[in-house]
């Protein structure tokens, strides 16, 4: 985890942008993904998705990711529609999702998520084999921890004042 250095003693201050560039995806500890084979049914994919905390399932051919099915697909295309749960998951998944490697930087992940409106990105090894998954929650967790608790105890600014006297 990148330490934010504050400019108290003339040290270089690291910006949020720098922190995002220097943090690797592996430091966010990608979750282990739920995977089903590309021949799986929708019912199998949903059962597998329920076992995860990320709310998505990878559809794989061997180790290679060929598609992804997320909670959003359930809301948009499946639940409340006349869909047989014995249908093939391939009919509903998003094909060839954007992926990145564990050595990619966090700013790359944010860019991909922002531009594609994704909230999950599969993490793959050099050969394209699935290693993990990072979700928007990993990024929120990183941002929430970016500022150590000490910054909550900063002295007040001059434009912040208390209307009434302190004390009982």
């Amino acid at each position: 985890m990148v330490e934010i250095v504050r400019g108290l003693n003339g040290e270089k201050q690291m910006s949020v942008r720098e922190a995002l560039r220097q943090t690797k995806i592996r430091e966010l500890k990608p979750s282990s993904p739920a995977c089903v084979d590309r021949t799986a049914t929708l019912a199998e994919a949903i059962a597998s998705m329920r076992g995860t905390s990320t709310g998505c399932v990878m559809v794989c051919e061997g180790q290679r990711v060929t598609g992804i099915l997320t909670e959003r697909d359930l809301v948009d295309k499946i639940v409340g529609e006349p869909v047989a749960f014995s249908s093939a998951v391939e009919e509903f998944m998003t094909r060839n999702p954007k992926t990145l490697t564990a050595d990619a930087s966090l700013d790359e992940a944010i860019r991909l998520m922002d531009q594609g409106d994704y909230r999950h990105l599969p993490v793959v090894d050099g050969a394209g084999g699935i290693e993990g998954i990072i979700s928007i929650q990993h990024i929120i967790g990183f941002l929430a921890e970016l500022f150590p608790t000490e910054v909550l105890n900063l002295p007040p600014r001059q434009n912040q004042y208390i209307d009434s006297r302190e004390g009982g």
Partner: peptide
């Protein structure tokens, strides 16, 4: 969470 992500993308990147 998406609002927060978009905010960070805009402001930091």
């Amino acid at each position: 969470a998406k609002d927060a992500l978009k905010f960070i993308a805009r402001e930091a990147l």
